[in-house]
Amino acid sequence: MNVKVLVFGIVAAVVLAGAGIGGAYWWHQRNLPSQASAADCSLAQDIIDRAQKLPHDKTAVAKWQKDMHDLRTAKMSDGYLGLEISSYEAWSANRATDTGTAPSKDELKSVRKNANSHCTAVKRTLVFPTIAY
């Protein structure tokens, strides 16, 4: 009888350990950032680059923002990457029209880090120029 209890205990411990390891792996995978496609990362860099050439006319900047929003929502599959890029778009538009405030270095660093975390699988590093007023 004691042998049966020992064997059952060992089997139960192995099953529980396997479930714990599997659960930890699932939790880790669930919390990783989504991975954007190469096309999404390329589009993101294109939008960042376009933001450097904004006019100072509020109407033209508003049109640019709408165009970039439409482009992102139509062409970019990774919405989490799109969210980071939209923050940069807004800051750039504010800079071009002299409205709002510039992002802090920490805010820009956070957006850069988060956006790049979505492009690691395609080995792409997005370059975010500093936004200064």
Results as ranks from 00 to 15, higher is better:
residue 72 R to C: 03
residue 57 D to T: 04
residue 28 H to I: 08
residue 30 R to D: 11
residue 32 L to W: 02
residue 51 A to P: 06
residue 59 T to I: 05
residue 29 Q to K: 07
residue 30 R to L: 04
residue 28 H to F: 10
residue 24 A to W: 12
residue 54 L to G: 06
residue 67 D to P: 02
residue 35 Q to W: 02
residue 63 K to P: 00
residue 47 I to P: 07
residue 30 R to G: 00
residue 46 D to I: 05
residue 51 A to V: 05
residue 61 V to T: 06
residue 43 L to Q: 06
residue 61 V to C: 00
residue 38 A to R: 14
residue 64 W to L: 03
residue 40 D to G: 06
residue 53 K to R: 14
residue 76 M to Y: 01
residue 65 Q to G: 08
residue 41 C to V: 03
residue 40 D to R: 11
residue 35 Q to A: 10
residue 41 C to F: 02
residue 55 P to C: 09
residue 35 Q to F: 04
residue 67 D to T: 03
residue 46 D to R: 14
residue 54 L to H: 08
residue 33 P to A: 02
residue 67 D to W: 06
residue 42 S to D: 08
residue 61 V to N: 06
residue 23 G to S: 07
residue 32 L to E: 12
residue 24 A to P: 01
residue 57 D to W: 03
residue 58 K to L: 04
residue 30 R to F: 05
residue 38 A to P: 01
residue 68 M to R: 13
residue 46 D to Q: 14
residue 63 K to A: 09
residue 60 A to Y: 11
residue 32 L to N: 06
residue 54 L to Y: 07
residue 27 W to L: 14
residue 40 D to V: 11
residue 24 A to I: 04
residue 39 A to I: 10
residue 59 T to C: 02
residue 51 A to T: 15
residue 48 I to V: 14
residue 65 Q to V: 13
residue 67 D to S: 06
residue 62 A to L: 03
residue 49 D to A: 13
residue 40 D to C: 08
residue 49 D to T: 12
residue 23 G to P: 07
residue 31 N to F: 03
residue 50 R to P: 03
residue 31 N to T: 02
residue 54 L to F: 13
residue 75 K to R: 07
residue 58 K to R: 15
residue 64 W to H: 08
residue 32 L to P: 05
residue 65 Q to I: 07
residue 47 I to S: 08
residue 46 D to M: 13
residue 30 R to P: 00
residue 67 D to C: 03
residue 65 Q to P: 05
residue 61 V to D: 08
residue 56 H to L: 10
residue 47 I to Q: 04
residue 38 A to F: 08
residue 24 A to H: 04
residue 43 L to K: 08
residue 53 K to Y: 14
residue 49 D to G: 08
residue 68 M to T: 06
residue 76 M to C: 01
residue 69 H to P: 00
residue 66 K to T: 09
residue 35 Q to C: 02
residue 57 D to K: 10
residue 56 H to R: 14
residue 42 S to Y: 03
residue 23 G to W: 04
residue 75 K to W: 10
residue 44 A to E: 04
residue 50 R to L: 13
residue 37 S to M: 00
residue 67 D to Q: 13
residue 63 K to H: 13
residue 59 T to R: 13
residue 40 D to Q: 09
residue 55 P to H: 10
